[in-house]
Simulated scan of single mutants.
Amino acid sequence: MAQLADTKRAHGATWSERSLRPQATRRKNPSQEDALTTPGPGAQPQTTERARVESLLRDRITTGTYQTGAQIPSMEALASELGVGKDSVQFAFNRLSDAGLLLLVEGRGTVVTDPQAPPTGPELHVTTLAGTTETWTVPGRGITNADHIRTVLTRRLARGTYPPGERVPSTRSLAEEFRVSQITLRNALKPLIEAGLLIPFQGRGTFANSRPPSVKH
Results as ranks from 00 to 15, higher is better:
A5S: 11
A5Q: 14
D6A: 13
D6T: 09
D6Q: 13
K8Q: 03
K8A: 09
K8Y: 04
R9F: 02
G12W: 00
W15K: 08
R18I: 00
Q23A: 09
A24R: 15
T25I: 06
T25M: 10
P30W: 15
S31Y: 07
D34M: 12
A35E: 01
P41G: 02
G42L: 12
T47P: 08
T48M: 14
E54C: 01
E54R: 08
T62V: 02
T62S: 06
T68G: 14
G69R: 03
A70R: 07
A70E: 14
M75H: 06
A77E: 11
V84M: 03
K86Q: 15
D87E: 07
S88H: 08
V89M: 11
F91W: 11
A92M: 08
L96G: 01
A99F: 01
L103H: 05
V105G: 09
E106C: 00
E106T: 04
T113K: 11
P115W: 11
A117L: 07
T120H: 11
T133C: 10
P139M: 13
G140H: 02
A146E: 11
H148S: 12
I149N: 11
T151P: 13
T154G: 10
R159F: 10
G160E: 07
S170I: 01
R172C: 02
S173E: 12
A175D: 12
R179K: 10
V180Y: 01
I183C: 07
T184R: 00
R186F: 04
N187P: 07
A188V: 00
L189F: 02
I193T: 03
E194R: 04
E194S: 09
I199L: 12
G205N: 05
S210N: 13
S210R: 02
S210T: 01
R211Q: 14
